[in-house]
Design a binder for these strands. Structure first.
Lengths: 149, 149
DNA sequence: ATTAATTGTAATTAATATAGTTACAATTAA
DNA sequence: TTAATTGTAACTATATTAATTACAATTAAT
């Protein structure tokens, strides 16, 4: 299937809302930065709202972060958009009569869980604030570099 | 799309080959443990062979591990079956004219890479030998428990 | 109050990755 | 010689995704 970019796009939306707060923040404006359709943005924002990451008001183009960027981690956004799904997929249908088929799911499941948690810990170490500040620094570097030419 | 179980099924195949070495190891026998078709097993084994994890001989039902189980990690098998693909997907199409759209891919890419490596380190910490021994211990525990009844 | 802009959401579509299936040539081993 | 088997290509069915279309509900400005 097509690969899911919900997580990345949702992070994008949250960063955009913070960086451009105070300006008109319609789904159309946000969509032009994400390069998708306004409907997709609204759908993603619906999920972020359900999970308490933003507050929106129907009819009004003023979405707001529900918490400060320093209090939102990438893992919070990941759980909101993708849920706590496996990173590595078990084959749930193996022969229970076989020594391998009858035990491998439990064993592999434990290994996969440990790997997943290791990745999630990294996501939880980074906040939206970290992301935003890094984006702003990169942008400033770009502008300096352009000025030099 | 349907979720990929290539990684799990490939691990299953390798564990099966080691545990049942010395017996007839046709793709049909292996498939009955994985609960899939012999063609799928042969296809997966083709990939494992290409990546130097097993040795097979056309026409002969005697696949062999190319290295000892203690020298094959879950990460070796992961790279063989899934490659070093992203665990978290960037949206590659964002507006380069926007501060957020023009910088987020680089920044998020770095964060995702760190999370991916953390998960891969865990996979690399576990060997096929670890898996096999754990499966055998669990099987023994099952048999003891059944005997008690 | 009216109205243009906007959000929220459901239904549908197109694209794509996957396991499974069918078919068969090449190889092995008895 | 032959039955069993591997290796591989072509095709199918299924499932997930972003995108699209449509429209009711709501807001905010006049």
């Amino acid at each position: 299937m097509r690969v899911s970019t919900r997580f990345s796009d949702s992070i994008h939306i949250l960063a955009f809302i913070d960086i451009y707060k105070g300006t008109r923040l319609s789904s159309e404006v946000i969509a032009s930065s994400v390069e998708t359709s306004p409907v997709v943005v609204r759908r993603l924002m619906g999920v972020l709202r359900e999970h308490g990451l933003i507050a929106t008001k129907q009819g009004s183009a003023e979405p707001k972060l529900a918490r400060e960027p320093k209090d939102i981690t990438l893992l919070d956004i990941y759980f909101a958009t993708e849920g706590n799904k496996p990173l590595f997929e078990l084959d749930k249908k193996t022969n229970p009569e076989c020594i391998v088929g009858g035990n491998i799911q439990d064993v592999l499941g434990d290994y996969y869980e440990q790997a997943k948690i290791a990745a999630q810990r990294k996501l939880n170490d980074t906040t939206l604030q970290d992301l935003i500040e890094t984006i702003l620094v990169k942008q400033k570097a770009k502008e300096i570099a352009r000025g030099k030419k």
